[in-house]
Design a protein around this nucleic acid. Structure first.
Lengths: 201, 201
DNA sequence: ACCTGAACACCGTTCAAGT
DNA sequence: ACCTGAACACCGTTCAAGT
């Protein structure tokens, strides 16, 4: 529940609950379009709040970014766990990669964080990313057992490739919004057992 | 000659020549370590100059970034043209990708710009990147004719994969500085004719 | 408790004053 | 011509003053 304050906090007063909801909603919209570089003043204005209020709810701008991105990673974890039951294990894995890349295509803030913005190191986000990674590990295990991916591929590889495939396509996306499908397909070909040549340690 | 001012400029006075050399040298060092987010004040101080002097030589911080990155792309173009004569066409192509990725590993500013910092759109840099791309196109053509890469791969693909492979490895580099070799190998496997399955349009 | 805007130390950029 | 630092409009963050 990232829309809630820290676990040990007392209940919020009614006006604070309202401020917080307005803030989260504005932050979702503004970050999605303008990325993590959107200013706190910009978000405060979109929420109809003073910027002091933003810092009352989130001590640092990064904490706000984390709260928003955390929600998105939650969604991605849920999607991943559903894909674990896909009929075709290979399609399950491809479905995860498609979801992760489309998230980057449609949300600038997620894209910034995935690409390695400093917020990545935030403890809350690190924990959530670890949860995602274990879900992905299960997805990869299943695909591997079905012979759909080579033996030497790990869940971490697939996680890292999520950013890699998106960043490969990124410079061309304004002109060719679907170009990421090309690089996802190319990457997927490299994951096939048929393509396997020994990888360096 | 990116250490020189614009083509149509009058010759610089002796003190300006010295300032410019100090500035370029400091910018090379500072940008390499701290990336494009290093402040102009930081570079001015490293050069022993007032920051007003920086803006006298480069009207915008971005122009200074471009001048420095431009030099690095020049070096990469030269490397690429030499690799065109490598004994093994596949090794020539792999050599280019290795050089491009190592540049990102060792130089934070190059890495920032390759990853899509706004400076990428600067006309001077766009031109230089286009030159690099045609050199890479020749390298790919040669590898394709030798049957070392699949038919549907272009020079642009290889250019884009340079960032992609680096960004895949980026989160792990502090712990595993050689991990990029794993993803380069994996990507290279995907480029093999044996791995080829039709790519989306 | 909570909200707010003025104040602070930064940033890139401009420019008047010095040589 | 060239160099410089003070001044400006931004940024994230703090905090005294208000309810």
């Amino acid at each position: 529940m990232s829309t809630e304050p820290a676990d040990n906090a007392r209940p919020l007063r009614a006006d604070a609950v309202r401020s917080r909801a307005l803030l989260m909603s504005a932050a979702r919209d503004v970050f999605a379009v303008r990325g993590t570089e959107a200013s706190v003043a910009e978000i405060a204005q979109a929420a109809g709040l003073g910027k002091g209020t933003v810092f009352r709810h989130f001590a640092h701008k990064d904490d706000l970014v984390v709260a928003i991105v955390d929600e998105m990673v939650d969604d991605l974890v849920a999607t991943t766990e559903q894909l674990l039951h896909a009929d075709d294990p290979a399609e399950g894995l491809r479905g995860f990669m498609t979801a992760g890349i489309e998230l980057q295509v449609h949300n600038q803030a997620f894209c910034d964080v995935a690409a390695g913005a400093a917020v990545r190191q935030h403890p809350v986000l690190r924990g959530k990313i670890a949860r995602l990674e274990s879900a992905v590990e299960a997805l990869v295990d299943r695909a591997r057992r079905a012979g759909a991916v080579r033996d030497d591929i790990t869940g971490q590889d697939v996680m890292l490739l999520l950013t890699g495939v998106y960043q490969t396509a990124a410079p061309m996306l304004p002109e060719s919004p679907e170009i990421w499908k090309r690089y996802l397909a190319l990457t997927f070909d490299g994951l096939q057992p048929a393509a396997a040549r020994p990888l360096p340690a």
